[in-house]
């Protein structure tokens, strides 16, 4: 969903740039509470993995493809604020070195692919955790569903931005319908990748996964009580 320069007009691009900068500013402060000596290297790895995974476009039919956005994945693994920063770093590198996503559109892309997917993904994930059984085994499925939801929401936000500041005289309703349709399909791929990756890390080191930590801590406390 990398937005190139030119799709959105200057005022809209400036506005999304301001929102992106504000979100990154908040994330820089909040991420401190998520990062310690053990999780900081993992954050670097998560960003590197998201960059790599975004190179893999998978076909979704009718000559169209999609790739992982990674915000929900990063949010569950290293926390929403750190996750947002991870994806923002990926987007900056893509825009500056790979010409993937525009330069004036960088704020738009940080908002859509970083802020929206990380925060929506994390809120949905936490909401699911509140209703699901408190077991480590529910972390990966919850992450997958959160990832699935995050993609059409990002498509919705793009469509709203296009309705406000699209440079072409194209019916906004048509754009919205088409964007939602395709991104529900792409969201399935997002869910599969997110579920598999979170599941793999949870299987070997649940204590390192931000979204699993409350469950792991609870379990450890139980064990200690029995041992004492």
């Amino acid at each position: 969903m990398h937005v190139p320069d030119g799709f959105l007009d200057a005022p809209t691009s400036v506005a999304t740039g301001v929102v992106a900068a504000a979100a990154v500013g908040v994330a820089l402060r909040r991420a401190r509470t998520e990062l310690d000596d053990r999780t900081a290297p993992l954050a670097g790895l998560v960003a590197a993995f998201v960059f790599a995974a975004q190179m893999i476009n998978f076909p979704v039919g009718a000559g169209t493809s999609g790739h992982l956005m990674g915000g929900a994945l990063a949010a569950v693994l290293v926390g929403p604020w750190t996750g947002l920063l991870c994806v923002a770093v990926v987007l900056v590198v893509q825009a500056l070195f790979m010409a993937d996503g525009g330069i004036t559109a960088l704020g738009t892309n940080v908002v859509l692919i970083g802020v929206v997917t990380a925060l929506v993904g994390y809120v949905v994930f936490r909401g699911l955790q509140a209703v699901l059984p408190r077991r480590v085994g529910t972390v990966a499925p919850a992450a997958a569903i959160a990832a699935f939801v995050s993609v059409p929401v990002a498509a919705l936000v793009f469509s709203l931005l296009f309705a406000i500041g699209g440079t072409a005289p194209v019916d906004a309703g048509k754009v919205l319908t088409a964007m939602l349709g395709w991104h529900v399909l792409i969201g399935i791929g997002e869910a599969v990748v997110t579920g598999l990756v979170v599941g793999a890390v949870v299987a070997v080191r649940p204590d390192l996964v931000r979204g699993a930590r409350p469950l792991v801590a609870a379990r450890e406390l139980e064990i200690r009580t029995v041992a004492a």
């Binding site: 969903m1 990398h2 937005v3 190139p4 320069d5 030119g6 799709f7 476009n57 076909p59 979704v60 009718a62 000559g63 169209t64 493809s65 999609g66 790739h67 825009a95 500056l96 070195f97 790979m98 010409a99 993937d100 996503g101 525009g102 330069i103 498509a155 793009f158 296009f162 699209g166 440079t167 072409a168 194209v170 019916d171 048509k174 754009v175 088409a178 964007m179 395709w182 991104h183 399909l185 792409i186």
Partner: peptide
Amino acid sequence: HPDGLEHVAEQTGFLDTAEDSPT
């Protein structure tokens, strides 16, 4: 294949507003 956004842009007719990145 083009990604979801690119495909939609082509389909609904705003793909030609895309500009080449300065990079």
